[in-house]
């Protein structure tokens, strides 16, 4: 009998995502992939996987999943509310995110709201037994490819699992939540700086922008002061779009292009968000406020290398976690107090 995770109730926008579909942009194929590659990688590390296995990207509110396997090890990374149900009609008990849990057949995990950011990731040990498309398990819904039938999860879906049971190794937790950084979102000016006026650049770097309701896997439309173009105007002969490219159409409001971005586009791009800060953008919710600050390409590369070092330390420094599936609030509280002594 094949092992499955059953989607008893789907969340708002759950899709399978890995690092993306790389190498086919010349054919117009968007990369897709995780909006927050940091959380994806940490979730895989906690589940005992290689970095690049597809996991469930949870958008804003997560699913309820029933275990139809002898046992399963899974890990949720991100500030999501998690509750474990021992079976149908049993009381739900809160369990922690940012660690792995070993759950048994018939138990169900309810992933509630993600708190304060837009995404969290749920990885399972061994991954999902779904065929890759053009080398990737990432879901790209606009072309209905990848993941499970190229779409977001629905009530009643059965996600096939590679492993029928969890391995016997112990559960792990993050030593600390990953520090994504704060302050302005860093950008490298260009490629079309010359399509913006001097005031336009000053407005962009000197103003606060608010994430509008038009924010999804393709990109984020910001609201705020209008950015002035130069005499060259907002239109260009279409060229390639890098992840994090900030295009500014005629109305002057910036749009940051993210995982599901089209491969080429015809609006002038004032700057590109640096790769180290893309996961921060992937976590933004409507109403969040950001500022942008300019750095050089060399500075951006150094920031990425520094982040990579911290990420490698985080995955190398996972700590043993108490081997259980669900605990009550009092015990959880007590455990946290003595954590360092007993489990450190």
């Amino acid at each position: 009998m094949t092992a499955h995770l059953i989607v008893e109730r789907a969340g708002l926008f759950d899709t399978l995502q890995d690092r993306g579909r790389i190498g086919f942009q010349a054919l117009g194929m968007p990369v897709a992939g995780a909006m927050d590659r940091i959380a994806l990688r940490l979730a895989n590390a906690l589940a005992g996987n290689a970095d690049d296995l597809a996991a469930i990207e949870i958008g804003v509110m997560g699913p309820t999943l029933r275990i139809e396997a002898d046992s399963i090890r899974l890990a949720v990374v991100g500030p999501a509310t998690l509750e474990l149900m021992a079976g149908p009609d049993t009381t739900a008990k809160p369990i922690e995110s940012n660690r792995s849990h070993t759950l048994q057949r018939g138990q169900a995990l309810r992933v509630g709201m993600v708190d304060g950011v837009s995404t969290a990731y749920l990885a399972v040990e061994g991954g999902f037994a779904l065929p890759p498309f053009m080398g990737s398990g990432s879901t790209y819904t606009r072309a209905a490819i990848g993941g499970l039938d190229g779409r977001k999860l629905r009530d009643g879906d059965a996600l096939p699992l590679v492993r029928a049971a969890a391995s016997t190794r112990e559960d792990k937790k993050l030593a600390a939540p990953f520090d994504y950084g704060s302050g302005p979102i860093r950008v490298v000016p260009g490629p079309q700086e010359d399509h913006f006026s001097e005031e336009g650049h000053a407005t962009f770097l000197g103003s606060e922008y608010v994430v509008s309701k038009e924010a999804d896997r393709m990109g984020i439309r910001f609201e705020g002061p209008s950015i002035g173009h130069s005499e060259k105007g907002p239109d260009i002969v279409s060229d390639g779009i890098a992840p994090g490219a900030i295009q500014v159409p005629g109305a002057g409001l910036p749009i940051v292009l993210l995982a599901d971005r089209q491969t080429v586009g015809g609006y002038a791009k004032i700057a590109t968000v640096i790769s180290a800060d893309l996961p921060r953008l992937g976590r933004l919710l409507p109403g969040h406020r950001v500022r942008f600050a300019a750095v050089t390409v060399a500075e951006a590369e150094a920031l990425r290398r520094e982040q990579e070092k911290r990420l490698a330390q985080a995955t190398a420094g996972l700590q043993p976690a108490r081997p259980e599936g669900g605990i009550d609030i009092d015990a959880l509280y007590e455990l946290n107090l003595i954590d360092g002594v007993v489990w450190g």
Binding site: F24, Q25, A26, V237, D239, G240, A300, E301
Partner: peptide
């Protein structure tokens, strides 16, 4: 180098900043 994206008038060269540098 990860991939290249041709357009009408430009070629975008995509690279992994952990494997090389622009310089």
């Amino acid at each position: 180098v990860v991939e290249t994206i041709p357009s009408m008038r430009a070629l975008m060269v995509c690279y992994d900043p952990l494997a090389t540098t622009r310089a």
